[in-house]
Amino acid sequence: MLTTFRDLFRYNIEFRIGVVLVSLIVIFSCLSFFSPYVPEQIYTVIPDQPPSLEHWFGTNSRGQDLFWNLTFAFRNTLVFGLIVAVLSRIISIVVGMTAGYLSGWVDRGLMFVNDIFVALPIFPILILFYFVLRNDLDTYTLALIMACLGWPFDARLIRSVGLGLRHREFTRQAIFAGMSPAKIMFEEHLPYVMPIIFSTAMANMIWSIGFEVTLGVLGFTNLNVPTIGTTLYWANNHSAMVVGTWWWVIIPVILIILTFIGLFLLAVSMNEHIDPRSRLRRMGGGNG
C-alpha cells in the first residue's frame, strides 16, 4: 500500500498535483478549528467589505468573515463527501463481492436490486426527502441518503472483478484449504479490489459534493449550516454579483473547482495505476 503511493508519487505528475491540491483544501478546512467566529452567527463583522489584510476573502452581506466562514463550509462539505464515499464503498464492496463470489441466484438477486438503484432518478428523490424532512435534513442525514444511492455502479464493477477472481486457481486452493466464503472474499479477494475502491471513492466524492452544491444552491437543504452549497445560496439570495460583492461568489467557486480538479486527478492517476501496462509505460518513461 505504502509502496503503491510512493510509486504513484514518484512517477505520476497527475497524482502529485492532485495530492497537493487536495492537501491544501484539507488544511484550509482544518483551519476552521481555530476560527475566531461562530459560523452560525451573523453580523459579527462589517458587511460587504472587499478582500483586505484584515479579512482575506472579504466579508459577505450577512456580516460574516468569508475566509473563516469558508473554512467551515469546506470542512462540512468534505466531511459530507467522505461519509458518503466510505458508506457507499462499504455497501458496494459487500454487494459486489458477494454477488461476484457466490454468483448463481445470489448474484441474480443482488444485481436485480442493483439495477433498480441504477435506474432511480436521484435528484427528484433528494428533493422529496427535503420536503419531508425540511430543516432536519442536516449534513449527516443527507450523507446517509446519498450513500444509499451512490453504490450500484461501483458494486457492479467490483462484482466483475470478483467473478474473474472466482475462477482463478488460488481461489480453489483456498476452498480446499478449508477457508470460508467470507474469508476468501475479504482476505483473498479484497486486496485485488482495493485500487478500484480508492479510485471510485474519489469519483464518488466529486459526485456527492456536486449534488450537495446543487441542492444547497437551490435551497433544498438546511440553510443554517455553512457548506459550499449554502454559501452560494446566500450569495445568490443577496444578489452578490449584481451588488458587486463578487468575492462572495468567485472565491468559493475557485476553491470548489480546485477541489474537484484535485480529486479528479487522484482518481485518474489511481485508475491508470490499476492497469499494469499503463503503469509500466509511465515508470519506464520515468526511468529514462
Binding site: 482463478r168 486457481e169 488460488f170 480453489r172 486452493q173 483456498a174 480446499f176 482476505e187 483473498e188 486486496p191 485485488y192
Partner: peptide, 14 residues
C-alpha cells in the same frame, strides 16, 4: 487437489 499452474495456485498477494 493439486492444480496445474503453481504460479496461479497461490494468491500472489498472500
Amino acid at each position: 487437489p493439486v492444480f496445474q499452474n503453481p504460479f496461479e495456485a497461490f494468491n500472489p498477494l498472500k
